[in-house]
Amino acid sequence: MIDIVGILADNILTIVLITLGGILISLGVHFVPVGGAPAAMAQATGVGTGTVQLAAGAGLTGLVTAGFMMNVTDNMGLIIASGTIGAMIMISVTMLVGQMMYVYGVGCPPASAKVKYDPITKDRQDLYVSQGTEGHGVPTASYISGIIGGGLGGLGGSMIYYALLSIDNGLPEAKFIGIASIFAVGLFFVNAVIPSYNIGGTIEGFHDPKFKRFPNAVLASFIATFLAAIMGVVAIGGM
């Protein structure tokens, strides 16, 4: 029988790191400009797919880059930085290619319908929003917001991954690397879905009024991730 209390007592820091990672993912999703199905028809600002797909795409890339760095070094800072940068590159490329589709394919200028002036470039937005739409493309503020969001997601994901792999259970890392990664992926999806329910599926970035709702999702993610973190630590610590 597994000594549950002993394992939990030994790995309090791991549980804290995993929970923090879940919160960071949840916060990061609020920054990513997701437009959902309307954006796929260039009728809303953001990339035309769901939160879960975008966050998962960026987050999983972050896990891969973090895992690759883990081959080379044990330095926590480097591994987490690698995960963060990987996720940022992935979300940037996704937004850039989406942007090209909107500008050269659909033929619409990137414009936000939520604010009159872009908070970063101070460019006028409302003049360029086509009638009957809620904006289109990825304006500068949304783009920068998306990079921040991808970075936070990658940071959280690689933190969870690193924390799970640093559990000392007397086995070589290769024996439980699969479990740690799939557990991190599972937590990533849970923490990507919770904020996407919070924002109702679409958000433009940090300048969107919906962004102010993030404390609710952070609270929900905190509770859900904390429960899951205990389970993960017990499962891996007891191996």
Partner: peptide, 11 residues
Amino acid sequence: LGTGVPSIGML
């Protein structure tokens, strides 16, 4: 749901 059906399956 507001987010499309896939989100709840992934959850």
